[in-house]
């Protein structure tokens, strides 16, 4: 077994005093793809937000480490520099900030963190060109404001493009399939698969099995009422697709 990339232990967190995550345990190793599924309101997006450092959520207990570093002690920007990437369910529009300036700031901030010189303009543009190809992103979007006026599909492709540029060790794809038609889904999933290596790992958060036809998970976890109540292999996703979440709900709620 290789080393642990992400280790989450008994993680508890909430929003406005309301507890949403009630003790999450999750271990992810390099090269793995984990799917987290669960009904609405089970805490999937809270988990991704808490790991990325979203200030809306308050951590009330437990721990999370990335490559041995205490993730919860780091600012969101330093979590990114340490190799965490969150693909947003709803990418934010930032009028007046162009994609190029946004990415240059992101790339150079990371280089600074790692003690490297800023990238030259030529190098940077070359890299942007290469990475755009991963998700077939239109060149014209580079001069536009971040996500402003992008279609749903363009926004999600833009997320994966950013992931390609930042080369994270751990990517969390939060409902990346929502709002995508089948062609866009194929491109986005194809992009994720191209970026997969033995050294990085991915958490795919999704409602539906559909995305998992394209991004094959090694493990599937079911999140319900703020806890991972069931873990299994890829076959678990198929079972959910067939039977829905009710049997899980019954099992968990029935135990009380």
């Amino acid at each position: 077994m290789s080393e642990e990339l992400l280790k989450v232990s008994n993680l508890r967190a909430g929003i406005d005093g309301k507890e949403i995550l009630r003790g999450i345990d999750l271990t992810i190793r390099p090269g793995e793809v984990h799917a987290i599924m669960g009904p609405n309101g089970s805490g999937k997006s809270t988990l991704s937000g808490v790991l990325a450092g979203d200030p809306r959520f308050t951590v009330t207990g437990g721990s999370a480490t990335l490559g041995g570093k205490d993730l919860l002690a780091l600012s969101p920007e330093d979590r990114s520099h340490e190799g965490l990437f969150l693909s947003f369910q709803y990418p934010v529009e930032i009028p007046g900030v162009t994609m190029v300036n946004f990415m240059r700031a992101a790339v150079n901030a990371k280089r600074k963190y790692l003690g490297q010189e800023p990238m030259s303009a030529a190098e940077f543009l070359k890299m942007m060109r290469q990475k755009r190809a991963v998700v077939d992103l239109d060149n014209k979007l580079a001069s536009r404001s971040v996500n402003e006026g992008f279609s749903g599909g363009e926004k999600k492709r833009n997320e994966i493009f950013q992931m390609a540029v930042l080369e994270p060790r751990l990517s969390i794809l939060d409902e990346t399939d929502s709002g995508l038609d089948i062609d866009a889904l194929r491109i986005v999933a194809g992009g994720v698969n191209k970026l997969k290596t033995d050294n990085n790992a991915t958490i795919v958060i999704t409602h539906y099995q559909r995305l998992l036809d394209y991004i094959k998970p090694d493990f599937v976890h079911i999140l319900y009422k703020g806890k991972i109540v069931y873990s299994g292999g890829p076959e678990l996703a198929l079972e959910l697709e067939e039977k829905g979440y009710d049997w899980i709900k019954q099992q968990v709620d029935g135990e009380k």
Binding site: A52, G53, D54, P55, S75, P76, E77, R79, S80, H81, F85, L86, F88, P91, V92, E93, I94, P95, G96, V97, N101, F102, A105, A106, V107, A109, K110, Y113, S145, V146, Q162, L166
Partner: peptide, 22 residues
């Protein structure tokens, strides 16, 4: 927007500056 930028590694003060400029 600030959190989105931070999550991409842009330090908060720099993100603030970029948003103000925008």
């Amino acid at each position: 927007a600030l959190f989105y930028m931070q999550s991409r590694g842009i330090p908060r003060h720099e993100a603030t500056m970029m948003l103000t400029q925008a």
